[in-house]
């Protein structure tokens, strides 16, 4: 199986685009059907859920630093995603180039 490399290992752009489209669809569907939902990042709600079950629970530790606003938080999240995506792109490009040279 490992010796026959070329054809069945080729990156099928069309097929993978369809797969990617499915992911986008999965993310959009809730937005279309749940018009009144708030789509909060649910950390705050989790705190409420716990205090609901254990009414006298006091969190015993606070984060040293919190992003001062939603904007700063999304900045950091996009930095995280951007950095990661850059590395993935670099790695795939590197592999692809090396692959070509060896042929």
């Amino acid at each position: 199986m490992d010796t026959k490399v070329k054809d069945n290992h080729k990156f099928n752009l069309g097929k993978n685009m369809i797969l990617f489209f499915l992911v986008v669809l999965l993310a959009i569907t809730p937005l279309l059907f749940l018009k009144d939902a708030e789509f909060e990042g649910a950390d705050g709600q989790a705190e409420e859920a716990i205090t609901e079950i254990a009414t006298d629970y006091e969190p015993w530790f606070e984060p040293f630093w919190e992003p001062p606003s939603g904007e700063i938080e999304s900045l950091l999240f996009s930095l995280q995603a951007g950095l990661g995506a850059g590395i993935i792109g670099y790695a795939i490009g590197y592999l692809k180039g090396k692959n070509k040279q060896e042929k």
Partner: peptide, 18 residues
């Protein structure tokens, strides 16, 4: 990097939260 990217993506779900 893949783990980095994916855990930064907050995606909406059927329960109305992300």
């Amino acid at each position: 990097a893949f783990a980095f990217v994916l855990s930064a993506l907050k995606i909406p779900s059927v329960t109305g939260s992300c």
